[in-house]
Design a protein around this nucleic acid. Structure first.
Lengths: 247, 247
DNA sequence: CGCCAACTTGATGGCTGTCAAGTCAGGTGG
DNA sequence: CCACCTGACTTGACAGCCATCAAGTTGGCG
């Protein structure tokens, strides 16, 4: 989990980027930009880098300079306490943005780690902020993204604060399914690219509990799972797990 | 807890406001505004309203139009599931902003309820957004506030996901103490204006557990508590509860 | 005075953590 | 080719923390 090469070393050369041709555009960027505005955005986002599986995009405490749009791959963000306890605060997939945590204090407040070989587009924050003065949709988009992140976090708080283990895991699977669907992948079959331990650390559960629940969901024909490959067999059954609780 | 008068009715008349003279200015607003910029801000924020204890500032689903700066009083925000479970997502005190959750979808995604008779300044979001085009510190301030909210939420996720009950409550008390201190009040003595139930719903615990822990903290001479009035006797003792855990 | 909400305290139980042993697949080196 | 190792995972036995259920206390208010 801890790679030998920190993110500063071995920066791979950047790749040609063009938001205007990117098929993830409507996830990262506001819709309805004029051609000219689009050109400005293309100019703004001109660095794309590969991040190898297991390496850090940024670490807690690193100076904040850029936000990042995931072009391909998969990430997790986590915070780690001095005593070793850690909390995964999210899993991010293509089209989603990383790094917003750094704006408030000019330094990042969590780690962002690639779970797969990935590519990210660098969005220099100062330049984006300048550009957003002129381009209203861009400004509004940034606000929306941050606000949605807050709302998402509230949902996780609800999960951690009120749900039992099986509900947490079912919620997690349904959320992944929904996000894969939004990206044109199968809602029912996908690869979990995180370990059981990482799932547990996100859901406030221990790895063993996650493992046991996967086994139980499998017995109950809700899912079929082989190592990291999961097939959701009964999506309504999973949803039912979320509701049949105490009033 | 559920007031008979919804927020739409009985809107009290607005009160004269002036940010430039407000002693909470450095909490709500960016520092270093010019006189002219300050005048623009004063013009922007011209509505202040009283919110009576127990009544809603806004509800889940309400159209988002404004963010709110707390002038005096105390609030909680919560989200409620169809089956009745709810999660308090935060407690807000004077100088803090409410409503950022609404930007993402144009509708509020949580309830904001006054725990004391309170006063809030309305900050119409569209106007603020326009003004922030011209005034860089204002724009940056908004970004900072939202980013800090994200970071704060991550802290709560850490609390809910990894901490045991006594650590959660100690963290909660220390956080309140620190925020009261920042507002010029005593770090050691203050009124908890929320119920045990609300504290529990914030910390992912049941009211009984909160009550038991208060009793235990009192036995251990960490605090003295009488109803809602709490006196922190041993702040270092509370801090020690957070560290002596498994590696 | 009586009622009610908020709170406290005790007894019990269950969910999930902890500890431990074992399986499995992939990678390495002899 | 195969023994070996390691990390990820699974499964079982047990225990502890906190929830649940229940009874009682307190204070505010009509």
């Amino acid at each position: 989990m801890n790679p030998s090469t920190p993110e500063q070393e071995a920066q791979p050369p950047s790749i040609e980027t063009s938001c205007s041709n990117c098929n993830l555009r409507e996830l990262c960027l506001p819709v309805g930009l004029s051609d000219e505005e689009m050109r400005s955005v293309d100019q703004l986002i001109n660095v794309r880098r590969r991040i190898r599986r297991g390496s850090y995009l940024y670490r807690t405490g690193a100076r904040f300079e850029s936000i990042y749009a995931i072009r391909s791959g998969f990430f997790k963000t986590d915070i780690i306490l001095e005593d070793g306890r850690d909390q995964v605060t999210g899993f991010q997939m293509p089209g989603e943005l990383l790094g917003l945590d750094g704006i408030g204090s000019d330094h990042h407040s969590c780690n962002a780690i690639a779970l797969l070989d990935s590519e990210v587009c660098y969005i220099p924050f100062r330049s984006m902020d300048q550009l957003s003065r002129e381009i209203h949709p861009l400004r509004h988009h940034l606000h929306k993204i941050m606000s949605r992140e807050i709302v998402r976090d509230h949902g996780v708080m609800l999960l951690l604060g009120t749900m039992r283990a099986e509900e947490r895991l079912a919620t997690f699977l349904l959320n992944l399914s929904q996000r894969f669907t939004a990206r044109g992948f199968s809602p029912a079959e996908f690869n979990l690219c995180m370990t059981r331990h990482e799932i547990g650390t996100y859901l406030g559960l221990k790895m063993e509990t996650v493992s046991r629940l996967f086994s139980r969901f499998q017995e109950e024909k809700l899912i079929a799972i082989h190592k990291k490959y999961i097939h959701i067999l009964d999506i309504h059954g999973l949803k039912r797990l979320l509701n049949h609780r105490n009033a």
